[in-house]
Simulated assay, not measured.
Amino acid sequence: MTGVQTLTIGADEADQRLDRWFRRHFPHVPQGRIEKMCRKGEIRVDGGRVKPATRVEAGQSVRIPPLPDDAAPAQPRETVSDTDATMIRDAVIYRDDHIIALNKPPGLPTQGGSKQTRHVDGLAEALRFGLDEKPRLVHRLDKDTSGVLVLARTRRIAGALTEAFRSRDTRKIYWAVCAGVPQPRMGTIRYGLVKAPGHGRGGEGEKMHCVHPRDVDAT
């Protein structure tokens, strides 16, 4: 058994549930044990009793009671091939201590899904650049869309950026390739989008087509 410990919540750990913070530091302690220690007052924050769902803030002190030494083996990281690691690192167009900006290539999904095993979220394992955790997604681009994709390097920045995208404080600009020169050169296009089926069993080659407003109901 370990002795009583006192840990301080870091700036990048703020605004998360106590039980989630606890499991990050002590992954071998099951959720039921954490809840029991909270009920008995063995886990305390700034000297006060807390619940597992209590949100912790930077600078708070957490009392950790004696814990068993038998830590469970760490979960293996996702494996990224050397080829994919080189590809995703070459896609980085900006990096600092807080964010990574990628030029996402078309055809690469942002996240995994049905039959999608190769995606940015998985390849992000190759984008740690010295940090303990892989960068986090804060928004998405469609699979066939290329463009700038922003990832947060810390949990705190991920929360701030996610809120910025949700509240539309960020500005997005989309560019499209067109055949010919539009006349007039400026204006607003108000067309509906419909999905045209692709070929093959998996629907490969699926495209979005523009439909004039008068024809939307007929599609």
Rank of each mutant, 00 (worst) to 15 (best):
K104C: 01
M87P: 08
R33L: 07
A74G: 06
Y94E: 01
V45C: 03
I99T: 10
Q60T: 03
K104E: 02
I34M: 03
P76M: 07
K36Q: 15
D97N: 10
K104L: 00
A85T: 01
K51C: 00
P52Q: 11
I100N: 00
I100F: 04
R44G: 10
A71Q: 14
I99S: 07
T86C: 10
M37E: 14
V62R: 04
K40N: 13
E42D: 15
R49S: 14
V62K: 05
M87N: 13
V62A: 09
I93T: 03
A58Q: 04
I93W: 00
T54C: 04
M37N: 15
D82W: 07
Y94Q: 04
D96N: 10
R44E: 12
G32S: 15
T79A: 14
E42Q: 15
V45W: 05
A101N: 02
A74K: 06
D70S: 14
H98I: 09
V92N: 09
I64S: 05
P52F: 10
D96A: 07
M87C: 09
V92P: 11
L102F: 04
I93V: 08
V80D: 07
R89T: 10
N103F: 00
V80Y: 12
A72L: 13
A58S: 11
Q75C: 03
A71W: 07
L67G: 01
R95T: 13
V62M: 06
K104S: 01
A91R: 00
V92C: 09
G59A: 10
A71M: 08
P52A: 08
I64A: 04
D96H: 07
D82S: 06
K51A: 09
L67E: 01
P68M: 05
I100S: 04
A58T: 06
I93H: 00
P76D: 13
A72M: 10
P52H: 08
A101L: 07
T79K: 13
E35G: 03
P68L: 08
R55W: 01
D96V: 08
A72G: 13
R89W: 05
S61V: 07
E57L: 05
G41N: 14
E78P: 14
A71E: 14
R44T: 11
M87D: 13
P65K: 07
G41I: 10
A101T: 05
E57S: 12
R55G: 01
V45M: 04
C38L: 10
G48A: 14
P66H: 00
G48F: 07
E57Y: 05
A85F: 03
P65A: 09
T86L: 09
K104D: 00
P65E: 14
I43E: 03
A71F: 07
I93C: 00
A101D: 07
R63W: 01
V45T: 03
D96I: 09
L102W: 03
I43D: 05
Q60H: 11
V56G: 01
R39W: 07
V62L: 12
R39P: 10
N103E: 02
I99G: 08
K40R: 12
D97Y: 04
G41F: 10
A91D: 00
N103R: 02
E35P: 01
G59R: 06
I93G: 00
I64M: 05
A58V: 01
N103L: 01
K51T: 10
G41S: 15
V50A: 12
